[in-house]
Write a protein that binds this DNA or RNA. Structure first.
Length: 626
DNA sequence: GAGCACTGC
């Protein structure tokens, strides 16, 4: 009975040898396609090796021979770094040598770099300096089917660049369902030939099979009354009736749970659709909903609401079950409901505030943004709203041309237009150092306070130590000042004050980056002002409040007798978010950084008191009719 | 008195 335990004697390899990946047998045909066709759309499952192998195939085939490089864009920072590390390992070099990556705040490339991974947003920024992206012989846009704003815009730019650079090769990696859309986008218009209408053959689709196992899809007989209850009972059913394997539940909000016998049950938001892959998942429970952000161009308000998912998302969720062995996907909706779902989510570019992207396009020399060749054109109202805001901030002139230097500088700064305007006005208000800090702190976009369960009061009192009468922006300034002076950037300071150290450290990086930009514009940042006497402090506070008004006048609100706010035109009721220092405090007029509708309430966050007269002083055009 | 998906420069 020499039945020894293989599992104990062998450790499974972390990575499959590259030559065993299914992509290996496609090498020659892939290289031929890329050589002969300007645009190649690669369809393949996660695990097919497309992101790691294709760049190496190209490098070996001589695509870097004349000093040009191969660029591979990723929608997320982690993806750019981890794939680069993996490829460097296979290539046999240190990261940053022949294989490198570049993301915001981290550039691991050098003169020897031939294969470069970067985020798509960063590549768009490179185009500001090098409009034809002339350093690259090949650009591969990975995960294009996710349809992020930046990858959509990048594809539009690449289509334009290709006309002037026929040598450039474009590779798009996509999920199966969306491949045709990319091909249509890159194909020349149909031409009449003696044989009838023919499609231009500029773009070819190549399919790489991945390693997946069959997945059983199960639907409900009748709709669930409460999908949360149904999710829980489904998990219990799986646990009692199905063989071993972990369970992934895609829903809208996130929590963690563990059942006996160590079957892992993971409740997950849509982070599981794109960002993380968890090993061992055999069962997927799909709630049928996704929480999506949308922007209303009429009100300028963003919302975050649960909506039915798309067929593409449902397929993505189900796919998570078949990674390691045959799996099952339990859909908490009926098959009829599935049939009525939209094919794909509305692309982000059609449901977002476009002001930042209109500004970027203008800076890239695309004057007529309405006629830009978008993969999916955004509704005109979204474009117009973006243009109007940029005009009111002075970034565009009467002819909708980018102003210089203001508009161009705003485009170069890595913050939203209203904050960019605030930053570029700060020197004239004598508070540039302070606004730099506020810009860095507000763009963290997350809660800097740590709240342990059941310790709400502790967090509240920690916050109160830094509270400023004037509002959240000055409170954030106090927090940062204490962090870099008293706290000497230590994690202990954060621990004692219930602050998120990672976010605070990030604020330091963002501030340094913004400061470098300003210095390049010739603005001098005087940091000696940080220590000022109390008599000038109140004056300083007012200068900061005035400066914020100069950038955020479009986000002004007035308090009503009942304690809620209304926007200037009086059409929308706004609530101070309970996380704001202005929650339950009196103020007449305020400006705010962000407005978002969740559930049935519209909240404003990062709020600062202002005087009504300042609105007229700094935005006379904008407020002349009110 | 909220409890808000995710990401990026």
């Amino acid at each position: 009975m020499a039945d020894f335990d293989l599992g104990a004697a062998f450790i499974p390899a972390l990575h499959k040898p590259a030559e065993l990946l299914p992509i290996a047998k496609h090498r020659k045909s892939l290289l031929y396609l890329i050589e002969t066709s300007p645009v190649t759309i690669v369809v393949g499952q996660t695990g097919s090796g497309k992101s790691t192998q294709i760049p190496q195939f190209l490098e070996r085939a001589g695509w870097c021979a004349d000093g040009k490089i191969i660029g591979i864009t990723q929608p997320r920072r982690v993806a750019a770094t981890t794939v680069a590390i993996r490829v460097a390992e296979e290539f046999g070099c240190d990261v940053g040598k022949e294989v490198g990556y570049s993301i915001r705040f981290e550039d691991a490339t050098s003169e020897t770099t031939r294969i470069k991974f970067l985020t798509d947003g960063l590549l768009i920024r490179e185009a500001l300096v090098d409009p034809l992206l002339s350093r690259y012989s090949v650009i591969m846009v990975d995960e294009a089917h996710e349809r992020s704003i930046s990858s959509d815009i990048l594809l539009g730019l690449l289509k334009k660049i290709r006309k002037k650079r026929p040598d450039l090769r474009i590779i798009i990696s996509s999920a199966t369902l969306q491949a045709e859309e990319f091909r249509n986008f890159f194909s020349e218009p149909k031409e009449e030939t003696p044989n009838g209408k023919e499609n231009g053959d500029n773009a070819s689709i190549v399919s790489l099979e991945g390693r997946t196992y069959p997945i059983d899809i199960l639907y409900l007989d009748s709709p669930a009354e409460d999908y949360l209850d149904k999710a829980v009972s489904t998990v219990i059913d799986i646990h009692t009736n199905e063989p071993k394997g972990d369970i992934l539940i895609s829903k809208c909000t996130c929590s963690r749970k563990r059942s006996e016998n160590f079957r892992k049950v993971i409740f997950s938001t849509n982070i599981s659709e794109a960002s993380v892959t968890i090993d061992g998942i055999v069962y997927v429970v799909d709630s049928g909903f996704v929480k999506l952000r949308a922007y209303d161009p009429k009100t300028g308000i963003e919302s975050l609401t649960a909506t039915p998912l798309s067929k593409a998302s449902a397929a993505q969720r189900a796919g998570r079950a078949g990674r390691t062995k045959p799996g099952k996907c339990f859909r908490l909706y009926t098959e009829e409901a599935y049939q009525s779902l939209p094919e794909a989510n509305i692309p982000e570019i059609q449901r977002s505030n476009l002001a930042p992207f209109v500004l970027q396009l203008k800076a890239l020399g695309i004057d007529n943004v309405l006629r830009f060749d978008f993969l999916a054109p955004p509704p005109a109202e979204l474009m117009v709203r973006g243009l109007e805001l940029l005009y009111s901030l002075g970034a565009l002139d009467d002819y909708a041309k980018l102003t210089r230097p203001l508009g161009l500088r705003m485009a170069e700064l890595a913050v939203e237009p209203m904050m960019a305007k605030t930053l570029l006005s700060a020197q004239s208000f004598g508070c540039l150092s302070e606004i730099l800090t506020i810009a860095a702190m507000t763009s963290l976009g997350g809660n800097i306070w740590i709240q342990h369960e059941g310790e709400k009061k502790k967090t509240e009192s920690a916050k109160r130590k830094f509270a400023a009468e004037e509002g959240d922006q000055l409170t954030l300034l106090n927090v940062y000042q204490a962090f870099v002076t008293k706290g000497r950037k230590e994690s202990r300071f954060c621990h004692e004050n219930l602050l998120n150290f990672k976010l605070m450290a990030r604020a330091v990086s963002i501030r340094a980056q913004l400061k470098r930009y300003l210095e390049r514009f010739g603005l001098n940042v005087d940091e000696s002002l940080a220590a000022h006497s109390t008599s000038t402090a109140s004056n300083k506070a007012e200068q900061i409040q005035r400066c914020l008004t100069a950038g955020y006048f479009a986000h002004a609100a007035r308090m009503q007798p009942d304690g809620t706010f209304r926007n200037v035109s009086g059409t929308t009721v706004l609530h101070a978010h309970p996380s704001s220092i202005m929650f339950n405090r009196k103020a007449e007029w305020v400006i705010f950084h962000e407005v978002m509708e969740t559930g049935n309430k519209t909240f404003i966050r990062d709020i600062t008191r202002i005087e009504k007269s300042w609105l007229l002083e700094y935005a006379p055009e904008f407020y002349k009719t009110t």
